[in-house]
Structures are given as C-alpha cells and as structure tokens.
Design a protein around this nucleic acid. Structure first.
Lengths: 235, 235
DNA sequence: CGAGGCGTTGAATGGCCTCAACGATGGTGG
DNA sequence: CCACCATCGTTGAGGCCATTCAACGCCTCG
C-alpha cells in the first residue's frame, strides 16, 4: 500500500488542456482557446495509488483538482477519533472548491482506487471565473452537485436499517458506472459511508451474497440484482 | 396552526433594499446604489407562521429568498414516506440557491418558527452575478456554507448514540443564538434532524432535564449546561 | 515462514424501535 | 362556557437489531 507517496513522487507530466480527452465534461468545459492562453501556470497530472493523501484537512487551499479516473474519499473526523466519509469523488469530479474562498481544505482527500488527477492553481480559477460567465455557471453547478450528493447521503445513506443503507449504497455506486458490474470498497470504508460498523457491513454484504442479491464475479467485483436490491432499499 | 397560508396572503409589503437593516449581512451586501437601480422587479416581504410552506420540492425555482427572522426546515422524503430534515435556514440565510441553475427546488421549505422573509426573482440574481464580482463571491460563499452545514449534519448529527446526537444538536442550535437560552423544536422535528425516532428524542431530552443538563425556563425554552453537554457530545 | 491486514462469523449485551397508554394543552363548536 | 377532540410530550414494556469483543481463515508482503 503506497501510504506515504507525496504528490511530487506521483507526478506524471504536464497537462495539455486544449487536447484533453475529457474536455467536454470538465470544469474548464466552457473555456475558449483564448482563455487557456491566460493560464500561465503549469497544470500537472498525477497518478496516485490507494491510501495516498491528495490533501489534508486544514491545509492552505492553493490548488484545485479534477479526477480523470479513479475514486477518492472525503473524510471528516469526530472528536472521538471516529471517521465519517462525507462524499466520494469520481471521474470528472472537482475537488477543493472550498479553496476558491481563500481558506483551507475542509476534508482529508484519500485515494480509494488508482486515480489519475489534474492539479491547477486555485488563483487561476478565481481569476478566470470573475470574467467568464461560463466558468461561473459551471462552478455553481459543481457546488450544487456536491450539495445534492451530501444531502442524498443524509437521506439515503444515514437513515433506515443497515440492510437498507447497504442496498442503497450499492445501487448508488452502480448508477455511476456504465457496466452491470461494480467494484466495492473495503467493508471499513463502506461502514464509514453508512454510519455503521465494519462488522455489520460485512455481515450484510455476506448475507446479500448468500441470498444471491449480489454475485461475486472476481475479487470484490459484484454483479447486482438491481430490482430486488431496490425493493430492499425502499423497504 | 396556519397550515395552508399561501404566500399571497402572507404578503407584508415591498422591501426597500437600500435601507435594509440587514444590509451588511445579506446576499446583496456587496451591491452599490447603482446596482440596485438595475433591479426593476419588486422585492416582496412576507410574514409566515409555523407550518407554512415557502416552496415545494419540484416547483420551478423562479424566486430566491432571504430569511430576515425565524427558522425554516428543508425537508427531503424517502420512498417509504419518512422525512429527513437536511438543513435549517435561519437569520440572513439564503434559500433557493439551486434555482440559479434554472431548475426546480430540491426540498420542501417549511416554516418552524414565525418567519420574516424577502423574496426576489431568481433572474435578478442570475443577471447581476454575471457582471458583479462581489455578488459572485457572495454566492460562492453561500454555496460553501450550505455544503459545510450538510456535511456537519453527516458527521455530527448522523453519527454516534442518541445522547450524543441530541447533545450536539443542542450545542449547534445554541451557537447560532447570542443568548444563553435556546428555543427547541418539536421532538418530531428534532428526531427528523437526527435520524432517530420521536420517542427516543423525547426520552433523551427528558433525561437531560432530570440530570440538570438543561433547565426549562419557559415553555420549550431551555438554559444549557454547555460544558457538560459538550462532554457528552464528544463521547 | 511469520506478520499483519481484511473479511467473516459467533455470542452476548445493550440501545433503539415499536406499540401502547396517559396527561396536558389549546383550539373548536355546540 | 364548557365539552370535545387533536396534538404533543412523556413514559412503559417488550423485542429486535446493531454493537462489542473475540476468534479464525485467507491472502499478501516482507
């Protein structure tokens, strides 16, 4: 487990935004060629392994990030040391929006699955957004998406029995993917998303397996029985 | 209980933003006199009683709102009919940010305590924000505040024992007020904020009363023993 | 080969939910 | 004016479900 890889070690090159393969779905989607010329700072790409920290809670937010591939968790901690995962960031998601206000990051951002990421200076976005309505709208849209997500976690993933929560999480993870298969996270991480213990998560998943609601295709990759899971989710 | 008061019936006059007593802390704080002249639409004020709906989930978001006084809950519903309160809106909070993106409201907004509110057309904000950096920044700050709040509800109010959650809610309600006293919401509403039942909420509050952690000054107004509540909250 | 991480399972406890009843309060209508 | 009803907070009893603590097998990695 690459626990302590620094960003410097994970550097994989400068990005060329103009020919970015995700150009259409990324924060800078609305920018024109002439806008990109205003960006004099380099935009770097990184390749990160599970366990790596993208940034820490309380750090000065000098950079923002776009996830090109992979998955990260955004974690907050309780005074008793317990952790709660408040959001996931996956393909094309933006990380570090809060940095635009000039403050610090609000979470630990930790890699869950091998992740490719672009890093750009916060001040670039701040400057461009003041004169570029398209970027301005895109930013608000990103904030709204994050807010909707957080609220969905409150209503769907923090309410009801463990069975219901796990089923809802599975359906939610599936929705983002295109395939009918779905790679799960560790039981501990799933528990931290659902506000339940690792053991209860494990028991519930194991029970779903026995009941044929999910079928393990390969290590921790599952095929889901969506209709029946949905029935459980709606309890 | 004024359950079915329409906004029309609750109308209490046009607002004069330039001489608004909350001018400094409101969404329009950064606007200059010449900016206000661009607002040709009337801005209306309303006085709403507990139980009134400010707007419904799924309605077209033509208006945004500023709370001048009072409290509202933002509610989402589960398929099984259970409700979950995902946020509170209190003095100087803005409601309906999501309307800026041109869609519908994401919650039911329901009055909890007698509320004074200003209503302004969404398109006014949309137009002004594209050319006004101060308003632009203010909007980002409002988005971030809503997001932080939602995440705090995930970590503080949806995790741990019922005792801890209730204690954390009390401390959080207190923080916003200036006084050492605090008016509570109904047990049912508190339960819907914490993801626990009405009975458990009632039992917990009653126990806090017996232990002297909270003292009932008048009907449902309490004086809090903050240090000891904090000890419980941190478990 | 041993160590450690992870998923799983068991047993026992306890905390929360469910269902139920009751008093207090406030509003309504006869 | 008062009987009546609905709502709300409270409390009790019982049962279930999640937690806690523990053990074990499997796997990877050093």
């Amino acid at each position: 487990m690459a626990k302590n890889v620094t960003l410097r070690e994970a550097w994989s090159g400068h990005a060329d935004c103009l020919s970015c393969s995700l150009r259409e779905s990324v924060l800078f989607a609305g920018l024109k060629e002439e806008d990109f010329e205003k960006i004099h700072d380099p935009i770097d790409q990184y390749l990160l392994q599970p366990g790596a920290y993208l940034y820490h809670f309380g750090e000065q937010g000098d950079y923002m990030f776009t996830v090109r591939r992979g998955a990260l968790k955004l974690v907050q901690y309780l005074p008793d040391g317990n952790q709660r995962i408040v959001r996931l960031a996956r393909d094309t998601d933006v990380l570090g929006l809060e940095a635009l206000l000039g403050g610090t990051y609000e979470h630990d951002a930790i890699v869950l699955q091998t992740t490719e990421i672009c890093r750009f200076p916060t001040r670039v976005v701040r400057a461009l957004s003041e004169e570029n309505p398209a970027l301005h709208r895109e930013l608000m849209s990103r904030w709204q998406r994050a807010l909707s997500e957080a609220e969905a976690w409150l209503t769907e993933l923090s309410t009801g029995s463990a069975r219901q929560r796990v089923a809802r999480l599975l359906l939610r993870l599936m929705r983002d993917q295109n395939s009918r298969e779905c790679e799960l996270f560790s039981r501990e991480n799933m528990g931290a998303m659902l506000g339940i213990t690792t053991e209860t998560t494990s028991r519930t998943i194991a029970e779903f397996k026995r009941q044929g609601l999910i079928i393990e295709r390969s290590a921790n990759r599952f095929l889901l029985d969506i209709p029946n899971l949905r029935r459980i989710a709606e309890g």
